[in-house]
Simulated assay, not measured.
Amino acid sequence: MAPSDPLVSVEQVTRKFPLDHNAVTALSNVTFRIDAGEFLAISGPSGSGKSTLLNLIGCIDKPTSGRILIDATDTSRLSPSETSLLRREKIGFVFQTFNLIPVFTASENVEYPLLIQGVRTNERQKRVAEALANVGLSGRAHQRPDLLSGGERQRVAVARAIVHRPSLVLADEPTANLDTRNATQLIDLMRDLNHTLGLTFVFSTHDQRLLEHTPRIVRLTDGCIISDTHSERFEGATREQILAASVS
């Protein structure tokens, strides 16, 4: 990827789903780019295409037409095994329902992506400890999900998403199942990881609590981008200034 290339390039993407003898258009001719280090929300009402777009960027699905490039790689041209490898190495996922393995401890849930990658034991242990420390859960490493609060479970999900050091973290409605206190803590955590580790975060949401913390918002309606806005109050701001502005 050349220095001027975006991390993600969405180019004239359309996604249609078959329905009886017709087709439903979930996305229509969507084009935008995401640069490395951004903190970006995809927003819109239910049925606007948010989750569909996130799934396409995450290579869980493929567009009907158009293309998506990640690190200048055209994902539509990848084989299934190449697509799986790209997801494992470059993308972290945070799900609305946490998707933790209930019989695993927090550390074992975080470790799981590294096991799939075949990372050696010592390196796995180091990365898991680092990821849990980054989300403030070092002291809860040996607890199973049923002994954790909703906010703690989502933090474990974030640690799992970043443990393999991806280029891109995708989150689908990450605050939807959290109360205001835990949602605010999660937002602060993601902004902190974005700022300190340079992680690129892209998430779907209609949660105003999260949108108030977001420098860039891409808004969808009926599968089309209706606006792509940057908030001037975040330009060149420090983490402390961003958080202060977000709650003002």
Rank of each mutant, 00 (worst) to 15 (best):
E212R: 15
T180Q: 09
L211D: 10
P215W: 10
H213M: 02
G44E: 04
R191L: 11
I217F: 01
V169H: 02
S227V: 05
E82R: 14
C59S: 14
E82G: 15
V202N: 10
G118I: 12
T175C: 07
T229Y: 00
P166I: 00
E38P: 02
R120T: 04
L211T: 09
G92M: 05
A23P: 00
R124Y: 01
L115I: 14
F201I: 02
L69W: 11
A36E: 14
Q143T: 04
K126C: 07
N122L: 13
P3D: 10
T205F: 04
M190W: 11
L19N: 05
A133W: 03
T75P: 05
N122H: 12
D146F: 12
A159P: 08
P6F: 09
I116C: 13
I217C: 09
P6D: 01
I242Y: 00
V110K: 05
N29L: 04
S65A: 12
E212S: 13
Y112V: 07
L100K: 08
N177M: 07
G118S: 11
A176S: 15
C224Q: 15
S4D: 06
L115H: 09
Q143R: 14
A161S: 11
N55H: 15
R155W: 13
L168K: 09
Q143I: 00
I68K: 08
D179N: 06
S4E: 15
E11M: 10
L69E: 12
A41I: 10
N134Y: 13
R239D: 06
N122P: 03
N182C: 01
I68P: 10
C224A: 15
R153S: 11
C224W: 04
V10P: 00
P113M: 09
Q143V: 02
T83Q: 14
S248I: 05
E173L: 03
R191N: 01
A106H: 05
V13Q: 09
